[in-house]
Design a protein around this nucleic acid. Structure first.
Lengths: 143, 143
DNA sequence: ATATAATCCTAGCAGGAAGGTAGGAATTAA
DNA sequence: TTAATTCCTACCTTCCTGCTAGGATTATAT
């Protein structure tokens, strides 16, 4: 599985925040209820987004979360890379992976690099704003 | 990780067999040595390929494995689907996944379907024959 | 026939990640 | 001061990956 629930949930949080955007902060509780995700689990996911400065947060009564930028400015890729350990399709391509000793004669390396490219480009091409609109992203995406 | 070692090894087996193709059967031992993979582990992977009738096998002395079709006739996708539990990028798209109760109002479903498409099309576009040739698949693959 | 070289089959196991839970400390608004 | 909220740390269970072990079966060569 390339994308775990962590990543999927993170995306849903971003969309939820985008759709309920006002000047006020939006509480974890509200997000969790709307998205039907455990508060506690969601907490750990949101914290990653805060740490990466994708979200602004406020503690205490009336606190919650808020997007820092407009929905158009967040690509799907930029969110997923925060929650996923790695988005590489194969372990050889993970950052920090010790260069494979057989790389030079590897018949499949360029295959994997190509796959990585294709995935990356697709995920970069979609923004949170695209996902808010009620339409079908990807259905008309022709390779 | 979308593709596990199982899938990568399976692909390497196919390429190895393609490159060493003769009338005779090629032994597991030889493949394992050339590919520097544990015989025992490779055994379990190859057996999947035999069961799926992708390879022909012969037991006993002088036995081994052999491609059933020409390298051009095997797409990367057709091999990977045999060894990988699932090639879906998210669990919601796995075959046999119980339809998500929130599908109707899901903002991200089409995103995932699009991603799945993109991956599938890329992996369908490359064959074992492409991987034998000493060139760079994918480097010139423009989306 | 018998030895030998292979593939086939079943079982199990260690480590790590996924997916989540629990409890409390710190902070802010009313 | 109290209630609401985020922050932080630790833990737990379940499953998958990657791999190993040991033997049964089958075919060939001598």
């Amino acid at each position: 599985m390339l994308i775990s629930t962590k990543g999927r949930y993170a995306l849903r949080v971003m969309i939820d925040l985008a759709e309920h955007q006002t000047d006020e902060f939006i509480s974890l509780k509200g997000i969790a209820q709307r998205q039907e995700i455990s508060e506690k689990y969601l907490e750990s996911i949101i914290r990653m987004l805060v740490k990466a400065r994708v979200l602004e947060s406020l503690r205490g009564k009336g606190g919650g979360y808020k997007l820092k930028k407009t929905p158009e400015q967040y690509t799907v890729w930029s969110i997923l890379r925060l929650t996923e350990e790695s988005l590489a399709p194969v372990s050889c391509l993970e950052e920090g992976a010790d260069a494979c000793s057989k790389q030079a004669k590897c018949r499949t390396l360029s295959l994997w690099k190509g796959l990585d490219q294709v995935i990356r480009q697709y995920l970069e091409s979609v923004t949170i704003a695209d996902l808010m609109e009620h339409d079908s992203v990807g259905d008309d995406y022709v390779i």
